[in-house]
Amino acid sequence: MNQGQIEIKTPEFVSLNYQIAGLGSRGAAMLIDQLLLLVANIVIYLIFLMANVSDIFYLSDSWVPVAVAIILVFIINWGYFFVAEFFFGGKTLGKKLIGIRVIQENGHSITLLSSLIRNLLRIIDMLPTSYFLGMVFIFFHSKHKRLGDMVAGTIVVHERAAKKEGTSKIDKEILRRGLTKDSLALKDFALRSLGKKEWELLRIYSGKFLNIKLNDRVQLTRQLATKLLPKIGLDARDKEILELENILLTLYLITKDEWEYEL
């Protein structure tokens, strides 16, 4: 294993390799996020200040709009990281631009509780100023974790650009079938259930799809559909084999977009 990389073995005996994000990339992502929040904070303060001066709120106490603005800024500054990391695959805007994401130590997507914990502890990591304590932890920890990551059981890893699509046999088969990521409408909870583990299973399935006998493909399709479809709220028992194949190949497209990286 190269320095700065980590191998995670899932309960299904799938090995997942990640390149851990260090202080430089995490610091760059944080700088982008802080600049974004700074602009948002300034806009909020200006709006409330102008509203107060022009007496739009019609309040006798001039400090009330300012107090509301302070509370709103606090919620945005803390809630931004929590909401972005949980609902957008472990990525704030800064992390997305730098190419890193937060995941669980077991390789799964970050959970609601983990996102809540790691971002609540951001208050401690910011001490005494400018994330000094957090940077010290990241620099010296073997997996580049700040305090929030240690308590929440999360790590921050690198992503790389996805491989070019449309050149492999399976890509051509998917194109022939007219399948896209939009061929299957999934709710947010379903998308969050499709992590690196599911991607590995679908990657193996797609690799074998055109290279095995028809009977073996039918058996493999039913086995994988029985395992994965309940995760996204679908029942595999009432579907024909062609429909199951199309669903699994569409899931392959969806997870490929998120998880196929060159590390």
Rank of each mutant, 00 (worst) to 15 (best):
D125G: 09
L191F: 14
N246R: 05
F132W: 13
F81R: 01
V156I: 10
I100T: 15
I103G: 11
G153Q: 13
R118H: 10
E85M: 01
I100Y: 09
T111I: 07
E243I: 14
L248C: 09
L121V: 00
K213E: 15
L113P: 04
F48P: 01
N52A: 13
V73F: 05
H108N: 12
E7W: 05
N41C: 15
L112K: 09
L220R: 00
R118I: 00
S15N: 09
S142H: 10
R177K: 14
I232K: 00
S115V: 00
L46S: 07
F82W: 12
I232H: 00
Y80Q: 10
D216M: 09
I155S: 00
L112F: 14
V136Y: 13
I70N: 08
V156D: 02
A51P: 00
K181D: 07
N246M: 05
V156Y: 03
L116C: 03
I155Y: 03
I110G: 05
S183H: 03
L116G: 02
R122A: 05
E7S: 10
Y58F: 10
W78H: 04
G233C: 11
S62F: 06
G178I: 03
N17P: 07
A84E: 04
L248T: 05
F140I: 10
L93W: 13
I44H: 01
S193W: 04
F140G: 06
I56Q: 11
Y252Q: 03
V73I: 15
E240F: 08
I76Y: 07
P128R: 11
E7V: 09
L244N: 02
K145Y: 02
F139W: 09
L175R: 09
K181A: 13
I174W: 07
L263G: 15
S25L: 14
P128F: 12
I241T: 12
